[in-house]
Design a protein around this nucleic acid. Structure first.
Length: 226
DNA sequence: TAAAAGATCCCCT
DNA sequence: GGGGATCTTTTAT
């Protein structure tokens, strides 16, 4: 491990259950473009989705849209949300598994002028990437990036710059879904001002978790309502 | 062939 | 705090 010299995450990093990978992605860096066109942001909020999860796009099996999600880990799955926005996911687990982690918020690090240019009407840094649709717009990610290999340092990639994931990340239910709403598969940097929403107030959300979140072996906690 | 729902954001009241 | 914009994917006739 180097000091703070950013290093690109390797394929193996992504080859685990998304419930395990998701919290580890906190404080990692998303890098888009190179040289003066380079934009980057620190991941401060994520959500996990798996094939045995009714809220996941992969739940109904492989389709044209979700092909990337069922491909090898370490690639980017991009889809259009509500006909207007792009959402970016990191494919996890083994090839064919259909697992991914949704990037929900970033803290802008570099290339802020370009981000502001991409997000008309925005005036504050915290409004640049504090949401799934916002961060893709700020970073310039679109459907054209679907399938991108995140381990390729020459392209859109993920890097570690020496900042460790939070020892006690915030944990809560996922946002914006209508099924499997009880699974605590949303993680965020608790003291970040750049997350999309604070711990769900209406519902008894979840408090912070300890160092370890819901483990790997766990099939699926409370989804089974019956 | 048609229809509905959706991992959201922003503006208006 | 509430609703509209906007369009792709999937599922139902």
């Amino acid at each position: 491990m180097s000091r703070r010299e950013p290093h690109v995450l390797a394929r193996g990093f992504f080859a685990s259950d998304p419930v395990v990978v998701a919290p580890l992605l906190l404080n990692k860096v998303v890098v888009v473009g190179q040289g003066s066109a380079r934009r980057s942001g620190r991941i401060v909020e994520v959500e996990a989705y798996r094939a045995d999860d009714p809220a996941s796009h992969s739940y109904r099996g492989l389709t044209a849209r979700t092909a990337v999600m069922f491909g090898p880990p370490g690639h980017l799955y991009v889809y259009r949300s509500y006909g207007l926005h792009w959402c970016a996911n990191v494919v996890c687990g083994a090839e064919g598994e259909g697992a991914a982690v949704l990037l929900r918020a970033i803290e802008p690090l570099t290339g802020l002028p370009a981000m502001y240019a991409s997000r008309a009407g925005i005036r504050r840094d915290v409004d640049l990437g504090s949401g799934p649709g916002k961060l893709t717009q700020a970073l310039g990610i679109s459907g054209a990036d679907n399938g991108a290999d995140l381990t390729d340092p020459g392209g859109l990639h993920l890097a570690a710059d020496g900042v460790a994931p939070p020892a006690a990340p915030g944990v809560s239910r996922r946002i914006g879904i209508s099924v499997a709403v009880d699974v605590p598969w949303r993680w965020f940097v608790a003291d970040s001002a750049h997350i999309s929403k604070l711990p769900g107030p209406g519902r008894p959300g979840q408090r912070r978790s300890g160092p370890s979140a819901p483990g790997p072996g766990h099939p699926l906690p409370p989804i089974d309502q019956s």
